[in-house]
Amino acid sequence: MSRLLKKHPGLAWIALVVFTSVCSLAVLWAQKNRSTTAVAPAVKSEAKPDLHPVTIKPGPPTPRLDTGLKDPHGKPITVACSTCHSTTTPNADRKTAHDLVQAHRGLSYAHGNLTCLSCHNAKDYDTLHLADGRSVAFPDVMTLCAQCHGTAMRDYTHGSHGGMTGHWDLTRGPRVKNNCVNCHDPHHPKFPLVKPVLPPRDRISVPKEPAGNDKH
């Protein structure tokens, strides 16, 4: 490089001009990027004009209760949650599922010490609600998770919780991120135990195998 500059001093000027313009472009780009990443991702998509979008998988659809009955075409008959719950008295103290007898039997539940109505909306069982009472549609459930799990949400926003597929480089292609509930069942959010796949069969699987122990 320095040898080249000695031979062609004019190059230094060109290099300087190029360098400064690249720098200012980079700063502009960084600012633009910051302004878009600073906000928590909208639950659906944060499309940018020049970058490919980052899409978050949708939350669950508004649930309905399966009545166990079938219509003439054999399709299960379901009813909206509000069908019954517009007449039942909401039970604000309920925080377990094991004594549910009249409905929702077998629901497995272990989420901190939360009551059912910390999430479900006593005023409208077809929705959820935030701490301030605002209702949240089921597909937007992440807004609700974020309210109590700020750290996880911060990590998620910065790509270090929750995983993704697609492109690391959004100038080349889009990215899809998981929804919290793809991995955490809202009723028992602990990640389940799994059976590992593909046990290794190679010879050196444990580092520091004593020398000469190689089984050829």
Binding site: G163, M164, T165, G166, H167, W168, D169, R172, G173, R175
Partner: peptide, 9 residues
């Protein structure tokens, strides 16, 4: 090509 590694996905 801008994509994420297979192990990450």
């Amino acid at each position: 090509n801008g994509r994420l590694p297979a192990c990450l996905e």
